[in-house]
């Protein structure tokens, strides 16, 4: 074997051990039979995938269609989607602001964006909960100035989860957008105005299409971890509103149904890959 092939060995090995192997195990476990106290019995079964869509009657074994799990999947997609859009609306102006600062100031602003991320995600999520809860500073302040009688329900709901997702993943939107805007040739904007585009037209016809790669990168970096997020729904949702990540976690902890957890993981992975594939195909077609 030639030396230059050996140079690839560390990365290939890492991918193999920490990515390919776990994915293979997960997929394999999803088609096995659950053991009583966790783990699997080496007996093929499609029960996990059937369970996703149907409920098996415990007396007569008949299957009835059940949308409980599909709802959780849908809610996860929706939550992640909304969080991605919110990150976009917050991230685009922020990235634009940073990218248009004088050269010496940019790194300072970028550092400020990343400062909160020096603190562990769990700590940040709990801190957000402390701010949002009934006795938190927001509710106390609102009460003190007489705007509200009782505490607003800020924590333990979809709003809190969304806020948690946005605050967790916002930099993943800002940074790729910053890189795209940094490369943007601002004379194109002058050209657009010169060619009778108003501000709105210049933004939608010139700026957005050219920033598209950055938008897609940022969107994926927020959406993909968002859809499978665990901490925000667990802590900020108080475990009341399940998202896919929590459902999967439950299967390996409380419910001890490893194959079902593995099946959910596989489905999540498949949904993500299909979305990526569609985006990549569209991007390739538009560049052709």
């Amino acid at each position: 074997m030639k030396l230059h092939r050996l140079l690839l060995a560390p990365s290939l090995g890492t991918i193999l051990i920490f990515m390919a192997l776990p994915i293979a195990i997960t997929t394999l476990y999803s088609v096995l039979t659950p053991a009583q106290y966790g783990g699997v019995i080496w007996e093929p079964s499609s029960e996990a995938y059937i369970r996703l869509l149907f409920e098996r009657d415990i007396f007569d074994d008949t299957l009835t269609f059940n949308t409980d799990y599909l709802q959780i999947l849908g809610r996860s997609v929706l939550q992640a989607g909304v969080a991605t859009l919110l990150c976009l609306f917050i991230g685009l102006p922020t990235a634009w602001f940073i990218a248009t600062r004088p050269a010496g100031q940019k790194s300072l602003w970028l550092m400020l964006v990343t400062v909160p991320y020096w603190v562990n995600l769990l700590v940040r999520t709990i801190a957000l909960l402390l701010i949002l809860r009934d006795e938190g500073p927001i509710n106390r302040a609102l009460h003190a100035i007489g705007l509200t009688d009782g505490p607003l329900p800020l924590a333990y709901n979809n709003f809190a989860i969304g806020l948690g997702l946005v605050s967790s993943f916002l930099p993943f939107m800002i940074l790729p957008l910053y890189a795209a805007i940094e490369r943007f040739d601002f004379s194109l904007l002058e050209a657009a105005y010169d060619l009778h585009a108003n501000r709105r037209q210049a933004f939608f016809e010139v700026v957005l299409p050219i920033l598209r790669p950055g938008l897609i990168a940022g969107g994926l970096l927020v959406f993909i971890p968002g859809i499978g997020s665990y901490l925000a729904p667990d802590i900020l949702g108080g475990g009341k509103t399940l998202m896919l990540g929590n459902l999967i976690g439950m299967q390996f902890q409380g419910s001890r149904n490893w194959p079902f957890g593995a099946a959910l993981s596989t489905i999540l992975m498949a949904v993500t890959l299909i979305a990526l594939f569609i985006i990549a195909r569209r991007a390739a077609r538009e560049d052709a």
């Binding site: 040739d185 002058e190 050209a191 010139v206 050219i210 598209r212």
Partner: peptide, 13 residues
Amino acid sequence: VNTVFQTYALFPH
């Protein structure tokens, strides 16, 4: 008035 820019500034997309 319209302008021919020094760097052309053609829309790449």
